[in-house]
Structures are given as structure tokens and as C-alpha cells.
Amino acid sequence: MYSRALTWWTILRIALAERLVYRGDFALGTLMRFLPIITQIFLWFAVFQARGNEQLAGYSYRDFVAYYLLTMIARAFSSMPGLASGIAGQIRSGEIKKFLIQPIDLLGFLLLGRIAHKLAYYAVAALPFALVFFLCRDFFPGWPSATNLAAGILSLILCFLLGYYLEACMGLVGFWWLEVSSLLFVYMLFSFFLSGHMFPLDMLPEPWKTLVMLTPLPYLAYFPSAVLLGKMQGGELVFGLLAEAGWVVFFIVLSRVVFHYGTRRYSAYGG
């Protein structure tokens, strides 16, 4: 037990050191990532002016700006750049063999790598994030209530796990397809629009909103942001958290099943 924990700790430390090599570039890149939001803010300002500053789908102009900034946090938890394509690439190149013959679990190893990546990312990105949120503090309706803050943090942790296992499942499809880039493109397309980081999903007309909420996508950006913004209260909040946790469990189980059958199918390509 102890030696096992030691192994995982070592893996985490290696991954952490790897991620902190280019910290300056990292911090600058994070600040730059806020730039596209500027045009979005102007766009919504113009839309609200045309509406005579009337609320839109229950959001005021300030709520919109706050919502966009909060989705940046949610995306910082749920986005997994290169995870699925990396897994598929390892299957194709045969590199995955090392996980099949060594007593290391592939999904656990990559999860620790991602945790280390995210920890390093937050350590460096906290400053630019704090700066932007401080400059934009007037757009927020104030700190969320203690319940919403706790629920928001929980939903962020769940959205990290959801993002990880969802993408891992797609990468594992590589056991059957070898090349998953077209699948990833379709996923990216839908998640870009339906995870809510382009617009709050409350804007969607029925029955589309209900349909979209039945998919796991809203929990990657919309749900944590709405919770932190105080748009989710009471029963809706509890139901949302349960649904999010349900999706996490679903994708953990699915990834294990896919991995099990995938390795049965696997015939070592490459040297």
C-alpha cells in the first residue's frame, strides 16, 4: 500500500516539474486567452443596447460578462488539450504496450499527469486570473452564497473528472479506429457551442434547452458557471450536482469497459 502511494506520488512530482519549466510563457499565454472575451463583451453590450438594457433570458449585461469570465474558470478545469489524441496516438504507435506489460494503470497514470498539469496551471494562472477578476469586479453581483460557493467548487472538481474521463473514452476508441481526429472534431464542434462557453444555455429555446441539458456537455462549462453566478438554487442545484456526479461515474465505468475490451482487441502495432 505504502509503496503504491509512493509510486503515484513520484509520478505526480515528475509531471509537476515537467509543467513548471516554461512558466513565463504560460502566464502570458493565460492573459492572452482573455483577449477574445473583449470582443464578446462589446458584442453583448451592443445587443443589450438594442434591447434597451432589458434582461435577456434572465441575464443582465453584467451577468453576461460575469458569466463569460466564470466559464473561463470552468474551462480551465474541464479542458483536456491533447488527451484523447494522445491516447489514440499511443495506441497507434504501439507505445501503449508499456502500460500493458508494466504494473501501471494507463488511465490512473494519465489522470495523475493531468492533475499535476492542472495544479501547475492554477499555480501560474492564478495571478492573471485574479488580476482580470479584480479589474472586472463591478460586473459581479458579489460573492456567491456559502452554499453556492461550496457547490461551485464541488462542481468544478466534478467537471475536471468529467472532462478527463469523457476525453479518455474518446481516445480509447482508438483501439478500434486508430485515428480519432474526425470523432474529436465532431465532439469539439458540439462542446464548443453546447457546453455553454459561447453563450449561457438559458438563451436556447425549448425544447432545445432541455435536450442539451440531458447531455453531459453543459457540465463542462455552463453548470459550474451558473452555480457560481447564483443562477442555480435549491432543488435545481442539488439535481444538477447529482446529474454531474452521475455522468462522472458513467464515464469512469465506460472508460474501464472500453479499456477492457480494447486491450482484448489490441494487436501490437509498431516496434
Binding site: V47, A50, A57, S182, F193, M198, M203, L204
Partner: peptide, 25 residues
């Protein structure tokens, strides 16, 4: 794929025009 991407973008603006008649007063 590039046309689908554009179509999704178009959908986004169609959604905006569900809620407003004009971009800017």
C-alpha cells in the same frame, strides 16, 4: 468540416437575433 463550423457560428447569430432586432441601438 469547415462549412459545419461556419454553420454552427451562423446558428449562434440566429440565436442572438431571436433575442434582439439589431446589433447595437
Amino acid at each position: 468540416s469547415s462549412v459545419t463550423w461556419t454553420a454552427m457560428n451562423l446558428g449562434f447569430y440566429l440565436l442572438i437575433f431571436q433575442h434582439t432586432d439589431e446589433i447595437g441601438a
